[in-house]
């Protein structure tokens, strides 16, 4: 069972990287909107797992996206940030439910799932564009990009997560 979950995660990692760089990085909707769907990896990743391994894996995920899109290492920096903050976000969103042994993402309410995903995306995009643009003089540009691209990412991530939903047990 454990090897099965490893296998799924490896496949998911590779597929998300390919989908991100070959499809969504070329979307350029309105000239600048490229949704980032690879965040779903962090959304789907099992909850009770070794945290250090998860942070390391997220760093690798961001770095592989960076290799493809010539963005230095800003994807890696923003992904590792949400990987580190994920337990805190989950505690905020799911509250006491998280303490139960049998807790699964699929069992949470839709509002909770939605909030969890939205928070991951907004934090990620904020770090990403703050690092990419890297000047407080352009705060407005950063906010504009964070808002519009978060919305697009959220929309596509929701579509993807309902298409390939984690089976309810």
């Amino acid at each position: 069972m454990i090897s099965n979950s490893y296998f799924i995660n490896v496949i998911r990692f590779a597929l998300l990287v390919l989908v991100q760089v070959l499809v969504f990085n070329r979307l350029n909707f309105f000239g600048f909107i490229n949704p980032m769907v690879y965040i779903l990896f962090l959304y789907w990743y099992p909850i009770k797992q070794n945290r250090a391994a998860f942070i390391g894996l997220s760093f690798l995920l961001g770095l592989s996206i960076d290799f493809f899109s010539d963005t230095m290492a800003i994807n890696a920096a923003s992904t590792v940030t949400i990987a580190y903050l994920r337990p805190a976000i989950m505690r905020f969103v799911f509250g006491v439910n998280l303490e139960f042994q049998s807790f699964k993402l699929g069992n949470a309410t839709y509002v909770q799932q939605f909030t969890f995903l939205a928070l991951l995306i907004v934090v990620h995009h904020f770090v990403f564009f703050a690092l990419e643009i890297f000047s407080f003089a352009n705060m407005l540009l950063i906010l504009k990009k964070v808002l519009s691209i978060s919305l697009a990412s959220l929309l596509l991530c929701l579509l993807f997560s309902s298409l390939f939903s984690v089976r309810k047990e």
């Binding site: 760093f59 920096a77 590792v80 690092l131």
Partner: peptide
């Protein structure tokens, strides 16, 4: 604090790469 330290370390690595390639 090993997770926090790991996070700080990886973040430094990423920012280091970013600034270096500026």
């Amino acid at each position: 604090y090993k997770n926090f330290l790991l996070y700080i370390f990886l973040m430094m690595v990423a920012i280091g790469f970013t600034i270096q390639s500026h």
